[in-house]
Design a protein around this nucleic acid. Structure first.
Lengths: 198, 198
DNA sequence: TTGACGTGAGAACGAGCGTTCTCCTACGGT
DNA sequence: ACCGTAGGAGAACGCTCGTTCTCACGTCAA
Protein backbone atom coordinates (compact mmCIF):
# COMPACT_ATOMS: atom_id res chain seq x y z
CA UNK A 1 0.00 0.00 0.00
CA UNK A 2 2.88 2.32 0.63
CA UNK A 3 4.41 3.29 -2.73
CA UNK A 4 1.00 3.75 -4.33
CA UNK A 5 -0.12 5.95 -1.49
CA UNK A 6 2.87 8.17 -1.90
CA UNK A 7 1.75 8.93 -5.41
CA UNK A 8 -1.79 9.58 -4.23
CA UNK A 9 -0.59 11.80 -1.41
CA UNK A 10 1.55 13.72 -3.86
CA UNK A 11 -1.39 14.35 -6.15
CA UNK A 12 -3.59 15.44 -3.26
CA UNK A 13 -0.92 17.78 -1.98
CA UNK A 14 -0.51 19.29 -5.42
CA UNK A 15 -4.27 19.60 -5.84
CA UNK A 16 -4.55 21.56 -2.61
CA UNK A 17 -1.48 23.61 -3.42
CA UNK A 18 -2.81 24.55 -6.80
CA UNK A 19 -6.18 25.58 -5.49
CA UNK A 20 -4.95 27.57 -2.54
CA UNK A 21 -1.76 29.07 -3.95
CA UNK A 22 -3.52 30.21 -7.07
CA UNK A 23 -6.51 31.66 -5.28
CA UNK A 24 -4.76 33.46 -2.46
CA UNK A 25 -1.05 33.59 -3.24
CA UNK A 26 1.79 31.44 -2.00
CA UNK A 27 2.78 33.42 1.06
CA UNK A 28 -0.79 33.69 2.27
CA UNK A 29 -1.16 29.92 2.54
CA UNK A 30 0.69 28.09 5.29
CA UNK A 31 1.83 24.51 5.28
CA UNK A 32 -0.66 23.74 8.02
CA UNK A 33 -3.57 24.95 5.97
CA UNK A 34 -2.25 22.90 3.09
CA UNK A 35 -2.28 19.86 5.29
CA UNK A 36 -5.87 20.49 6.28
CA UNK A 37 -6.98 20.99 2.69
CA UNK A 38 -5.12 18.01 1.29
CA UNK A 39 -5.51 15.51 4.13
CA UNK A 40 -1.81 14.78 3.80
CA UNK A 41 0.03 14.92 7.09
CA UNK A 42 2.80 17.44 7.62
CA UNK A 43 5.30 14.64 7.93
CA UNK A 44 4.37 13.24 4.58
CA UNK A 45 4.31 16.65 2.95
CA UNK A 46 7.87 17.22 4.05
CA UNK A 47 9.02 13.84 2.88
CA UNK A 48 7.45 14.44 -0.51
CA UNK A 49 8.73 18.01 -0.78
CA UNK A 50 11.75 18.93 1.33
CA UNK A 51 10.60 22.53 1.61
CA UNK A 52 7.71 24.73 0.65
CA UNK A 53 9.71 26.14 -2.21
CA UNK A 54 9.86 22.71 -3.85
CA UNK A 55 6.16 22.27 -3.42
CA UNK A 56 5.61 25.56 -5.19
CA UNK A 57 7.92 24.48 -7.98
CA UNK A 58 6.13 21.14 -8.31
CA UNK A 59 2.76 22.86 -8.37
CA UNK A 60 3.95 25.13 -11.16
CA UNK A 61 5.45 22.25 -13.10
CA UNK A 62 2.26 20.20 -13.00
CA UNK A 63 0.13 23.19 -13.84
CA UNK A 64 2.42 24.02 -16.75
CA UNK A 65 1.89 20.59 -18.24
CA UNK A 66 -1.86 20.76 -17.87
CA UNK A 67 -2.18 24.34 -19.04
CA UNK A 68 -0.20 23.83 -22.20
CA UNK A 69 -1.90 20.52 -22.84
CA UNK A 70 -5.35 22.06 -22.69
CA UNK A 71 -4.36 24.99 -24.84
CA UNK A 72 -2.80 22.71 -27.44
CA UNK A 73 -5.81 20.40 -27.44
CA UNK A 74 -8.16 23.28 -28.07
CA UNK A 75 -6.02 24.82 -30.78
CA UNK A 76 -5.47 21.51 -32.55
CA UNK A 77 -9.17 21.29 -33.30
CA UNK A 78 -8.66 23.95 -35.94
CA UNK A 79 -7.77 22.27 -39.18
CA UNK A 80 -6.63 25.39 -40.97
CA UNK A 81 -3.16 26.29 -39.61
CA UNK A 82 -3.74 29.98 -39.97
CA UNK A 83 -6.92 29.77 -37.90
CA UNK A 84 -4.99 28.19 -35.05
CA UNK A 85 -3.54 31.54 -34.09
CA UNK A 86 -6.84 33.22 -33.23
CA UNK A 87 -7.85 29.94 -31.60
CA UNK A 88 -5.17 30.57 -28.98
CA UNK A 89 -6.99 33.73 -27.98
CA UNK A 90 -10.34 31.97 -28.04
CA UNK A 91 -8.97 29.56 -25.53
CA UNK A 92 -7.60 32.38 -23.41
CA UNK A 93 -11.02 33.99 -23.46
CA UNK A 94 -12.61 30.83 -22.10
CA UNK A 95 -9.93 30.60 -19.43
CA UNK A 96 -10.39 34.23 -18.38
CA UNK A 97 -14.09 33.55 -17.93
CA UNK A 98 -13.66 30.57 -15.65
CA UNK A 99 -14.88 30.96 -12.09
CA UNK A 100 -11.97 31.81 -9.84
CA UNK A 101 -9.75 33.09 -12.62
CA UNK A 102 -7.16 35.34 -11.06
CA UNK A 103 -4.63 35.97 -13.76
CA UNK A 104 -1.67 33.96 -14.90
CA UNK A 105 -0.32 31.79 -12.10
CA UNK A 106 3.25 32.22 -13.29
CA UNK A 107 3.09 35.96 -13.58
CA UNK A 108 1.53 36.18 -10.14
CA UNK A 109 4.04 33.90 -8.50
CA UNK A 110 6.86 35.76 -10.20
CA UNK A 111 5.63 38.99 -8.69
CA UNK A 112 5.49 37.33 -5.32
CA UNK A 113 8.62 35.19 -5.25
CA UNK A 114 10.61 36.00 -8.34
CA UNK A 115 13.05 38.09 -6.36
CA UNK A 116 13.36 35.62 -3.51
CA UNK A 117 13.45 32.20 -5.12
CA UNK A 118 15.62 31.32 -8.08
CA UNK A 119 13.91 27.94 -8.33
CA UNK A 120 10.52 29.55 -8.78
CA UNK A 121 11.86 32.20 -11.14
CA UNK A 122 13.32 29.44 -13.30
CA UNK A 123 9.98 27.66 -13.44
CA UNK A 124 8.33 30.86 -14.58
CA UNK A 125 10.91 31.47 -17.27
CA UNK A 126 10.65 27.89 -18.47
CA UNK A 127 6.87 28.09 -18.71
CA UNK A 128 6.91 31.35 -20.63
CA UNK A 129 9.63 30.08 -22.91
CA UNK A 130 7.58 26.96 -23.64
CA UNK A 131 4.52 29.03 -24.41
CA UNK A 132 6.51 31.25 -26.71
CA UNK A 133 7.96 28.24 -28.50
CA UNK A 134 4.51 26.87 -28.97
CA UNK A 135 3.39 30.11 -30.59
CA UNK A 136 6.46 30.01 -32.78
CA UNK A 137 5.49 26.55 -33.98
CA UNK A 138 1.98 27.76 -34.79
CA UNK A 139 3.33 30.70 -36.74
CA UNK A 140 5.68 28.40 -38.56
CA UNK A 141 2.96 25.89 -39.44
CA UNK A 142 0.87 28.74 -40.83
CA UNK A 143 3.69 29.73 -43.13
CA UNK A 144 3.99 33.13 -41.50
CA UNK A 145 7.21 34.94 -40.72
CA UNK A 146 8.82 33.82 -37.49
CA UNK A 147 9.02 37.42 -36.32
CA UNK A 148 5.28 37.29 -35.77
CA UNK A 149 5.62 35.00 -32.77
CA UNK A 150 7.08 37.65 -30.49
CA UNK A 151 4.24 40.14 -30.89
CA UNK A 152 1.64 37.40 -30.55
CA UNK A 153 3.30 36.31 -27.35
CA UNK A 154 3.29 39.87 -26.03
CA UNK A 155 -0.38 40.27 -26.89
CA UNK A 156 -1.20 37.06 -25.04
CA UNK A 157 0.83 38.07 -22.01
CA UNK A 158 -0.74 41.50 -21.98
CA UNK A 159 -4.17 39.96 -22.19
CA UNK A 160 -3.46 37.58 -19.30
CA UNK A 161 -2.15 40.28 -17.04
CA UNK A 162 -4.93 42.70 -17.89
CA UNK A 163 -7.66 40.11 -17.47
CA UNK A 164 -6.15 39.19 -14.13
CA UNK A 165 -6.20 42.79 -12.94
CA UNK A 166 -9.56 43.86 -14.31
CA UNK A 167 -11.43 40.58 -14.06
CA UNK A 168 -12.76 41.01 -17.58
CA UNK A 169 -12.52 38.59 -20.49
CA UNK A 170 -12.39 41.42 -23.00
CA UNK A 171 -8.60 41.60 -23.29
CA UNK A 172 -8.73 38.22 -25.01
CA UNK A 173 -10.99 39.56 -27.75
CA UNK A 174 -8.89 42.70 -28.13
CA UNK A 175 -5.76 40.63 -28.41
CA UNK A 176 -7.38 38.29 -30.91
CA UNK A 177 -8.36 41.14 -33.19
CA UNK A 178 -4.91 42.65 -32.93
CA UNK A 179 -3.40 39.25 -33.71
CA UNK A 180 -5.62 38.95 -36.76
CA UNK A 181 -4.51 42.36 -37.94
CA UNK A 182 -0.86 41.43 -37.46
CA UNK A 183 -1.29 38.16 -39.32
CA UNK A 184 -3.01 39.96 -42.15
CA UNK A 185 -0.34 42.64 -42.29
CA UNK A 186 2.43 40.05 -42.22
CA UNK A 187 0.72 38.07 -44.95
CA UNK A 188 0.30 41.21 -47.02
CA UNK A 189 3.80 42.58 -46.76
CA UNK A 190 6.65 40.78 -48.38
CA UNK A 191 8.15 39.46 -45.15
CA UNK A 192 6.38 36.16 -45.37
CA UNK A 193 5.86 33.31 -47.70
CA UNK A 194 2.96 33.62 -50.09
CA UNK A 195 -0.44 33.88 -48.53
CA UNK A 196 -3.70 32.93 -50.17
CA UNK A 197 -4.77 35.89 -52.24
CA UNK A 198 -8.34 37.12 -51.84
CA UNK B 1 10.49 72.43 12.55
CA UNK B 2 7.72 69.95 13.11
CA UNK B 3 5.25 70.27 10.22
CA UNK B 4 8.01 70.58 7.66
CA UNK B 5 9.76 67.55 9.05
CA UNK B 6 6.66 65.51 8.70
CA UNK B 7 6.75 66.13 4.98
CA UNK B 8 10.43 65.24 4.86
CA UNK B 9 9.89 62.10 6.88
CA UNK B 10 7.08 61.11 4.57
CA UNK B 11 9.28 61.50 1.53
CA UNK B 12 12.08 59.53 3.13
CA UNK B 13 9.72 56.78 4.13
CA UNK B 14 8.33 56.60 0.61
CA UNK B 15 11.82 56.64 -0.87
CA UNK B 16 12.83 53.65 1.22
CA UNK B 17 9.54 51.90 0.56
CA UNK B 18 9.90 52.34 -3.15
CA UNK B 19 13.42 51.07 -3.24
CA UNK B 20 12.90 48.06 -1.00
CA UNK B 21 9.38 47.05 -1.97
CA UNK B 22 10.20 47.21 -5.63
CA UNK B 23 13.47 45.35 -5.35
CA UNK B 24 12.42 42.55 -3.03
CA UNK B 25 8.63 42.51 -2.80
CA UNK B 26 6.34 43.94 -0.16
CA UNK B 27 6.07 40.94 2.10
CA UNK B 28 9.81 40.40 2.14
CA UNK B 29 10.45 43.83 3.67
CA UNK B 30 9.49 44.42 7.28
CA UNK B 31 8.59 47.70 8.89
CA UNK B 32 11.75 47.55 10.95
CA UNK B 33 13.96 47.30 7.91
CA UNK B 34 12.05 50.20 6.44
CA UNK B 35 12.81 52.23 9.49
CA UNK B 36 16.49 51.44 9.21
CA UNK B 37 16.60 52.34 5.54
CA UNK B 38 14.61 55.54 5.86
CA UNK B 39 15.87 56.84 9.17
CA UNK B 40 12.26 57.48 10.13
CA UNK B 41 11.33 56.05 13.48
CA UNK B 42 8.64 53.40 13.80
CA UNK B 43 6.49 55.80 15.75
CA UNK B 44 6.61 58.36 12.99
CA UNK B 45 6.04 55.77 10.32
CA UNK B 46 2.86 54.69 12.04
CA UNK B 47 1.64 58.20 12.53
CA UNK B 48 2.23 58.95 8.86
CA UNK B 49 0.72 55.68 7.65
CA UNK B 50 -1.68 53.91 10.00
CA UNK B 51 -0.72 50.51 8.64
CA UNK B 52 1.70 48.93 6.21
CA UNK B 53 -1.06 48.58 3.67
CA UNK B 54 -1.45 52.35 3.49
CA UNK B 55 2.26 52.79 3.07
CA UNK B 56 2.15 50.40 0.15
CA UNK B 57 -0.75 52.33 -1.35
CA UNK B 58 1.05 55.64 -0.89
CA UNK B 59 4.20 54.22 -2.45
CA UNK B 60 2.21 53.07 -5.47
CA UNK B 61 0.42 56.40 -5.75
CA UNK B 62 3.61 58.42 -5.74
CA UNK B 63 5.30 56.06 -8.14
CA UNK B 64 2.29 56.26 -10.43
CA UNK B 65 2.59 60.01 -10.64
CA UNK B 66 6.30 59.91 -11.35
CA UNK B 67 6.11 57.02 -13.79
CA UNK B 68 3.41 58.57 -15.90
CA UNK B 69 5.06 61.97 -15.69
CA UNK B 70 8.34 60.65 -17.02
CA UNK B 71 6.66 58.70 -19.76
CA UNK B 72 4.59 61.70 -20.84
CA UNK B 73 7.62 63.98 -20.75
CA UNK B 74 9.57 61.68 -23.00
CA UNK B 75 6.73 61.13 -25.43
CA UNK B 76 5.90 64.83 -25.62
CA UNK B 77 9.28 65.49 -27.18
CA UNK B 78 7.96 63.99 -30.38
CA UNK B 79 6.34 66.72 -32.42
CA UNK B 80 4.63 64.41 -34.86
CA UNK B 81 1.58 62.92 -33.09
CA UNK B 82 1.86 59.63 -34.93
CA UNK B 83 5.47 59.24 -33.83
CA UNK B 84 4.42 59.54 -30.21
CA UNK B 85 3.12 56.00 -30.21
CA UNK B 86 6.42 54.30 -30.94
CA UNK B 87 8.00 56.78 -28.53
CA UNK B 88 6.07 55.08 -25.73
CA UNK B 89 7.91 51.87 -26.48
CA UNK B 90 11.21 53.70 -26.76
CA UNK B 91 10.68 54.94 -23.27
CA UNK B 92 9.77 51.46 -22.08
CA UNK B 93 12.97 50.17 -23.60
CA UNK B 94 15.00 52.67 -21.62
CA UNK B 95 13.14 51.75 -18.47
CA UNK B 96 13.68 48.02 -19.00
CA UNK B 97 17.39 48.68 -19.30
CA UNK B 98 17.72 50.57 -16.05
CA UNK B 99 19.80 48.94 -13.35
CA UNK B 100 17.54 47.17 -10.90
CA UNK B 101 14.61 46.92 -13.28
CA UNK B 102 12.43 44.12 -12.04
CA UNK B 103 9.22 44.41 -14.01
CA UNK B 104 6.16 46.54 -13.52
CA UNK B 105 5.72 47.44 -9.86
CA UNK B 106 1.94 47.32 -10.16
CA UNK B 107 1.84 43.95 -11.84
CA UNK B 108 4.22 42.56 -9.25
CA UNK B 109 2.34 43.94 -6.31
CA UNK B 110 -0.91 42.72 -7.77
CA UNK B 111 0.48 39.21 -7.92
CA UNK B 112 1.59 39.52 -4.34
CA UNK B 113 -1.29 41.32 -2.67
CA UNK B 114 -4.08 41.63 -5.20
CA UNK B 115 -6.01 38.83 -3.57
CA UNK B 116 -5.44 40.06 -0.04
CA UNK B 117 -5.77 43.84 -0.18
CA UNK B 118 -8.58 45.63 -1.94
CA UNK B 119 -6.81 48.93 -1.37
CA UNK B 120 -3.76 47.78 -3.25
CA UNK B 121 -5.80 46.12 -5.98
CA UNK B 122 -7.61 49.41 -6.50
CA UNK B 123 -4.34 51.27 -6.85
CA UNK B 124 -3.21 48.81 -9.48
CA UNK B 125 -6.43 49.10 -11.44
CA UNK B 126 -6.31 52.89 -11.25
CA UNK B 127 -2.75 52.99 -12.51
CA UNK B 128 -3.45 50.67 -15.42
CA UNK B 129 -6.59 52.56 -16.28
CA UNK B 130 -4.65 55.83 -16.30
CA UNK B 131 -2.00 54.35 -18.56
CA UNK B 132 -4.63 53.03 -20.90
CA UNK B 133 -6.35 56.42 -21.00
CA UNK B 134 -3.07 58.04 -21.82
CA UNK B 135 -2.58 55.69 -24.76
CA UNK B 136 -6.12 56.44 -25.86
CA UNK B 137 -5.31 60.14 -25.90
CA UNK B 138 -2.19 59.50 -27.98
CA UNK B 139 -4.18 57.45 -30.47
CA UNK B 140 -6.78 60.12 -30.61
CA UNK B 141 -4.28 62.91 -31.18
CA UNK B 142 -2.79 60.92 -34.02
CA UNK B 143 -6.16 60.71 -35.68
CA UNK B 144 -6.18 56.94 -35.45
CA UNK B 145 -9.19 54.78 -34.60
CA UNK B 146 -9.81 54.56 -30.87
CA UNK B 147 -9.87 50.78 -31.07
CA UNK B 148 -6.11 50.88 -31.52
CA UNK B 149 -5.54 51.85 -27.91
CA UNK B 150 -6.51 48.46 -26.49
CA UNK B 151 -4.02 46.45 -28.53
CA UNK B 152 -1.26 48.99 -27.87
CA UNK B 153 -1.97 48.73 -24.19
CA UNK B 154 -1.79 44.95 -24.34
CA UNK B 155 1.50 45.07 -26.20
CA UNK B 156 2.93 47.40 -23.58
CA UNK B 157 1.72 45.24 -20.72
CA UNK B 158 3.04 42.12 -22.39
CA UNK B 159 6.39 43.80 -22.89
CA UNK B 160 6.58 44.91 -19.26
CA UNK B 161 5.77 41.49 -17.89
CA UNK B 162 8.11 39.72 -20.27
CA UNK B 163 10.96 42.10 -19.65
CA UNK B 164 10.42 41.62 -15.93
CA UNK B 165 10.61 37.86 -16.22
CA UNK B 166 13.43 37.54 -18.72
CA UNK B 167 15.46 40.60 -17.76
CA UNK B 168 15.81 41.57 -21.40
CA UNK B 169 14.94 44.86 -23.05
CA UNK B 170 14.02 43.16 -26.29
CA UNK B 171 10.28 42.92 -25.63
CA UNK B 172 10.13 46.70 -25.97
CA UNK B 173 11.55 46.59 -29.48
CA UNK B 174 9.24 43.72 -30.44
CA UNK B 175 6.26 45.58 -29.10
CA UNK B 176 7.29 48.75 -30.87
CA UNK B 177 7.50 47.02 -34.23
CA UNK B 178 4.15 45.36 -33.66
CA UNK B 179 2.68 48.71 -32.68
CA UNK B 180 4.03 50.24 -35.87
CA UNK B 181 2.46 47.49 -37.90
CA UNK B 182 -0.88 47.97 -36.18
CA UNK B 183 -0.76 51.72 -36.70
CA UNK B 184 0.01 51.19 -40.36
CA UNK B 185 -2.76 48.64 -40.73
CA UNK B 186 -5.22 50.87 -38.93
CA UNK B 187 -4.23 53.83 -41.04
CA UNK B 188 -4.79 51.68 -44.10
CA UNK B 189 -8.19 50.21 -43.45
CA UNK B 190 -9.25 50.69 -39.85
CA UNK B 191 -9.02 48.12 -37.11
CA UNK B 192 -12.28 47.74 -35.33
CA UNK B 193 -14.67 47.79 -38.21
CA UNK B 194 -15.50 44.49 -39.87
CA UNK B 195 -12.74 43.81 -42.36
CA UNK B 196 -13.56 45.39 -45.69
CA UNK B 197 -13.91 43.25 -48.75
CA UNK B 198 -10.85 43.40 -50.99
C1' DT C 1 4.15 -13.01 19.53
C1' DT C 2 7.48 -9.77 18.98
C1' DG C 3 9.76 -5.99 17.46
C1' DA C 4 11.21 -2.67 14.06
C1' DC C 5 9.36 0.54 11.24
C1' DG C 6 6.42 3.93 8.96
C1' DT C 7 2.56 6.94 9.80
C1' DG C 8 -0.64 10.46 11.66
C1' DA C 9 -1.89 13.94 14.89
C1' DG C 10 -0.35 17.64 16.69
C1' DA C 11 2.84 19.97 20.02
C1' DA C 12 7.07 22.44 19.97
C1' DC C 13 10.56 25.55 18.33
C1' DG C 14 12.80 29.48 16.71
C1' DA C 15 12.32 33.15 13.90
C1' DG C 16 10.07 37.06 11.96
C1' DC C 17 6.16 39.81 11.31
C1' DG C 18 3.01 44.18 12.16
C1' DT C 19 1.90 46.92 15.72
C1' DT C 20 2.07 49.13 20.27
C1' DC C 21 4.25 50.62 24.45
C1' DT C 22 7.83 52.40 27.59
C1' DC C 23 11.13 55.36 28.76
C1' DC C 24 14.19 58.99 28.09
C1' DT C 25 15.66 63.16 25.94
C1' DA C 26 15.03 67.79 24.20
C1' DC C 27 12.90 71.67 23.04
C1' DG C 28 9.15 75.89 22.95
C1' DG C 29 6.01 78.99 25.10
C1' DT C 30 5.13 81.49 29.11
C1' DA D 1 13.14 78.05 34.94
C1' DC D 2 9.42 75.18 34.05
C1' DC D 3 6.19 72.05 32.33
C1' DG D 4 3.92 69.83 28.46
C1' DT D 5 4.51 67.70 24.58
C1' DA D 6 6.59 65.46 20.64
C1' DG D 7 10.00 62.45 19.10
C1' DG D 8 13.61 58.72 18.99
C1' DA D 9 15.36 54.21 20.27
C1' DG D 10 14.10 50.04 20.91
C1' DA D 11 11.79 46.54 23.91
C1' DA D 12 7.57 44.10 24.11
C1' DC D 13 3.41 41.69 22.50
C1' DG D 14 0.76 38.56 20.16
C1' DC D 15 0.59 36.09 16.25
C1' DT D 16 1.87 33.23 12.31
C1' DC D 17 5.05 30.86 9.73
C1' DG D 18 8.18 26.91 8.09
C1' DT D 19 10.12 23.16 9.94
C1' DT D 20 11.10 19.48 13.28
C1' DC D 21 10.09 16.52 17.12
C1' DT D 22 7.34 13.48 20.23
C1' DC D 23 4.65 9.84 20.95
C1' DA D 24 1.17 6.52 20.39
C1' DC D 25 -0.65 3.35 17.03
C1' DG D 26 -0.97 -0.12 13.40
C1' DT D 27 1.18 -3.24 10.31
C1' DC D 28 4.03 -6.69 8.48
C1' DA D 29 8.38 -10.13 8.74
C1' DA D 30 10.25 -13.55 11.16
Amino acid sequence: MSPMDSAVARERALDAAEELFYARGVQAVGMDELRGASGVSLKRLYQLFPAKEQLVAAYLARRDERWRGRLAAHVARQREPRERIPAVFDWLEGWFGEAGFRGCAWINVHGELGAASALVADQVRAHKEAFRSYLTSLVDDAGLPAALAGPLFLLAEGAMVTAGITGSTEPAAEAREAARALVTAAGRDGLSRPSPAP
